[in-house]
Design a protein around this nucleic acid. Structure first.
Lengths: 214, 214
DNA sequence: TGCATTAGTGAAAAATAATAACAAAATTCC
DNA sequence: GGAATTTTGTTATTATTTTTCACTAATGCA
């Protein structure tokens, strides 16, 4: 399939899962079939082939996929190779958790700044970084050419922070505050509302028969 | 529409958003039209009516919806009224963040237990609760009839914890560890992988034209 | 060479979602 | 009181997306 930039959302959601599945495989193994990968990822094997075909022609007919190639392409497609930098705004428990979270660094995201406006938090050291006041954010973002802003503040200041991040020329925002942020044309916003997740889960609590939303 | 238990996933995902929108409204206002709510939630107004119709006949033609009724029904449908209890396993930064997170209590989820097997954490007090060893989990779950287990442990022990939670007769799991948990027939599992979220965001980083996955 | 295997993909089918459009019910205004 | 207006509930339609089937094309191996 032509690599024309148009991977369906449902597929994009599965790419990180495939990547994760590959990590589970014994290092000595060098190849994997769509059938086996499908099994690990708990999807149909035609789905796997279809999904991977969006990334280009990666496999070999009659043989399967070479794991290292697959991993590289997945990482490339997900933009995990270019090493995006991120800043975290709000260093309460959630912000700290995110700062400590190994998964980010591992997958090519470097957290280069922590910001908060609480004087008790400023200058505290967390995960090797010093917490700075939000007024210094612009500076850091320019210096490191930061692409991602992570909002872990209380809801009521989240929009204000988002606006500031946009002013800093950030390209995407990952929002953990429980509010709907205003959409902006050229900034991708992705929200994770922890209690919303719990609410959705809760909906399915008394309905064990139904399939849960993914 | 008959209230026959079958709300489409896309709708279930919007219900918490509607609930959130209602919270933004001035307390004195008692009614709201589908058009206005649509505007707040940033969706089509026909969509709002369609979505709400799954909950029963809540509005009044020519008038609109009574906010308090709407809120009650949304909460009821989402199961936020029955007061589910939850336990959190793993009290690192993320677990602590979740324990402190006001949103849960507010929306009807009571966190009744914190568990960890790190001796340095046991007996620590967090958000008014004392951290206990995982061996005591069964006990707490029975005592409080806990319905939800929240996993905030490192990935490598997550499956083991999930199994233990299932043994404790929990009904749903909200998993924050970056692993795919094995599916079990009568336990709903919902996973939030923070770095997966970031990876999906990252995919859209160089493709600002595309619409991001919801 | 022939058989077994497995990727890539067109096309069909299925599932899901969104929207338009309008009758029915309620209110307001004359 | 009745016409005009508003706004819901719902049917029907359309659109979109996703999944799966089924087959062809490579490849390896005996």
């Amino acid at each position: 399939m032509k690599n024309n930039n148009k991977i369906p959302p449902a597929t994009v959601k599965r790419l990180p899962i495939y990547l994760q599945c590959l990590e589970l495989i014994d290092e000595k193994t060098i190849g994997i079939s769509s059938k086996k990968l499908a099994e690990l990822a708990k999807v149909n094997d035609a789905q796997v082939r279809r999904d991977l075909s969006y990334l280009g022609t990666l496999g070999t007919r009659g043989v399967g996929y070479e794991i290292s190639t697959l991993r590289n392409q997945l990482q490339l497609e997900l933009g995990l190779v270019e090493g995006w930098s991120a800043v975290i705004v709000g260093v309460g428990n959630l912000g700290s958790a995110l700062a400590h979270y190994g998964g980010f660094q591992e997958r090519g995201f470097g957290v280069v700044g922590l910001f908060d406006d609480d004087p008790r938090k400023i200058n505290k050291q967390i995960a090797g970084l010093v917490v700075k006041p939000i007024s210094e954010m612009q500076n850091t973002c320019e210096k490191y050419n930061v692409a991602i802003g992570i909002i872990a503040t209380p809801g009521k200041v989240a929009q204000e922070i988002a606006d500031k991040l946009i002013e800093c020329n950030i390209k995407s925002i990952l929002n953990f505050a429980p509010v709907l942020l205003k959409n902006t044309a050229d900034v991708q916003i992705r929200s994770v509302d922890l209690s919303q997740e719990l609410q959705i889960l809760s909906y399915y609590l008394d309905r064990p028969v139904l399939k849960a939303v993914k």
